[in-house]
Amino acid sequence: MNGFYSIWTKPAGKNAQREFAMQDYELACLLLSVAAYENYNGRTKLYADKTSGAFFMERGLDDIFSRGMEEFEVPEDIDPKVFWAAGKLCALKLEDMPSVMVDTDLIIWKSLGRHLRDKSVAVIHREELNPAIYSDPGCFPMKRGYSYPAGWDFNIRPANTAMLYIRDKEFRDYYVKESLRFMQNLGPSEDNLCPMVFAEQRILPMCAAARGLSIHAFCPEMEGLREQDMFTHLWGHKNVFKFNMDERRGFIRRCMERMRREFPEMYERAATLPELKEAAV
């Protein structure tokens, strides 16, 4: 099963783009994620914009993805501050289906094949319809002329897309089209949470329902995430790594040790990187 990652740097701002560099813990997690995915599931590809692509080329990491890297772009009329994850949708648009979209801070530790055999769409877990995050669609300042498709059911629980499996191209096209259409039709907004999660995580299940597809969730309830042994997702823990160097170093050491034991080829690459060589075992 093919998998892909994407890195769009524009949301970081022009200054950050000029000096773009992945943090050491981000790099350690991504390398481990790629190694694990290639080992348990299949071949990977990185969709990178010019800036992130240059970063990987400079470090000689362009070939860690067995399907290589591909440059991609996000339409100019999508506000990167509001839709900071639009790059994922644009990368998804380019990918051949079936495939698994994997966040750079997510590691999949087991084979997905058995679980996805007869599934059309799969995610790790569903989200609660928390109105503070998934606000009423009527609240979005949409441009004149935009309307939600008639068949959408706004009562469906959102689906977290840290990992997203889609089998069919037809459904992928529908989802991406609707998601990008929403992004391109949002009026000026300062909100960098609600519109983004709507476009990515709420439109997905509504599109699926409209097409008569069900979404498989590995953990139907959030609480199940504590017990599962298939996924590691840094998610908000990245904020802890920003300000807690002990935790950060401990995490990197654990990633490096795991690579050394199970994915020695990736470890060799990681150990030469300036960001990670300090943590080389």
């Binding site: 590691i107 609480e223 995430l225 908000g236 823990h237 995490f251």
Partner: peptide, 13 residues
């Protein structure tokens, strides 16, 4: 704290 804030499966590494 919430799972969203802490991530999950960190002990699997």
């Amino acid at each position: 704290r919430l799972i969203e804030e802490l991530g999950y499966g960190l002990d699997l590494i």
